[in-house]
Simulated scan of single mutants.
Amino acid sequence: MAVTTPASAADSAAPATGQQPGATPPASARRRAGGGARHWRWPAVVPFFAFMAVCFGLPACTLAYNAFTVVDPATGADHYSLENVRHSLSGAYATGLAGSVKLSLLSAVLATVLGTVIGQALLSSRNGALRKAAVSASGVFANFSGAPLAFAFIATLGTTGTVTRLLHLKSTGFSLYTFTGLVLAYLYFMVPLMVVTVLPALDGVRTQWREAAASCGATKAQFWRHVGLPVLMPSLLGGAVLMFGTAFASHATAAVMTGSSVPLITIQIANALSGNVLVGQENLALAMSLNMVVIALLVMAVQIPLQRRSNRWLG
């Protein structure tokens, strides 16, 4: 009497299915299995999409709708018009938008250069305790902004500030309540933010690349010019774009330090919403906010490809 073992039963069943024992399942079977896995993943992300729709989608739609809505002062009726958008891109409002862009660009460039140099110095340091302390301090300073930062700068570099009186800065014509003062205040939290952002990219520059360049007779300057900087360029540009977006959206620091003396779009939006300039200009403020949203979307459109390319090289 023949005894059938599990192995022999599997071998006998293999020709019926046309698949050898231990062979990889067909592509169709793998697609069905993957489709089932993706099907079960959808319920897990539904709360996330619901949160995005309520907290971001609904306000964005309301913003866009009201930005193109004009209220007739005589009848109180609403009608669609481009009047708010035209006003938001002309006159003093165009000056405020240009001032915010200029402030953000200058702050982003300076923060990118200084943050990269400081980050490389930290990675090159042999003192591990100093490196950890500097990284921890950068994380703290990167989140110190807004009204507290403005009050700290006023107490330090204001008209009667401690450093202003000690170094007699007032006699040199320096004033904190100007465009230059805003740049200094923004760099206080943007440089540490850039340090935290660029450190992983700098750490991704492999030692083997430097050794290979040195074995070919390249100096450190030649290595950074021909290898290091080209590899890091997507990360540096992505960090600069992130710095631009951070400075462009900042409001509290500038509002407390300079008020309306430096034309910025964020301050103009706050004044229009509160009725400090003209009563009933809420929709004009929303049109200015829509301009900021468009610029933010352009910034994101630039940052995402740069981040992907950086991950490809340094991941």
Rank of each mutant, 00 (worst) to 15 (best):
A2Q: 10
A2D: 07
A2E: 11
T5W: 04
T5M: 06
P6F: 13
A13G: 06
A13S: 11
A14S: 12
P15M: 04
P15S: 03
A16I: 15
A29L: 04
R32C: 01
A37Y: 07
F49H: 08
A50N: 05
C55K: 10
L63F: 08
A67S: 15
T69L: 11
T75K: 07
Y80I: 15
L82F: 15
R86Y: 11
H87C: 07
A92Y: 13
G96P: 00
A98W: 10
V101K: 00
L105F: 10
A108W: 02
V109S: 02
L110C: 09
A111V: 00
V117T: 08
I118N: 03
I118R: 03
R126M: 05
A129N: 07
A129G: 06
A137S: 13
S145F: 14
A147I: 15
A147L: 15
A150I: 08
A155T: 10
T159R: 09
T160W: 07
G161A: 11
V163H: 09
T164M: 04
H168P: 00
S171A: 15
G173Q: 03
S175R: 12
G181T: 00
L184W: 08
Y186M: 06
V191A: 08
V196T: 12
T197M: 14
A201W: 07
L202G: 00
R206G: 09
Q208W: 03
A213C: 03
A214E: 14
A214C: 09
S215M: 11
T219C: 06
A221N: 05
W224D: 01
G228A: 04
M233S: 14
M233V: 06
L237C: 10
V241E: 02
A247N: 05
A247F: 00
A247L: 02
H251N: 05
M257L: 15
G259Y: 01
S261T: 14
I267R: 10
A270M: 02
S274D: 09
V277W: 15
V277I: 13
L278K: 10
L284Y: 08
L290S: 11
L290D: 04
M292K: 09
V293T: 14
V294M: 07
L298I: 12
V299E: 14
A301F: 07
A301S: 14
P305H: 07
Q307I: 10
S310Q: 07
R312V: 13
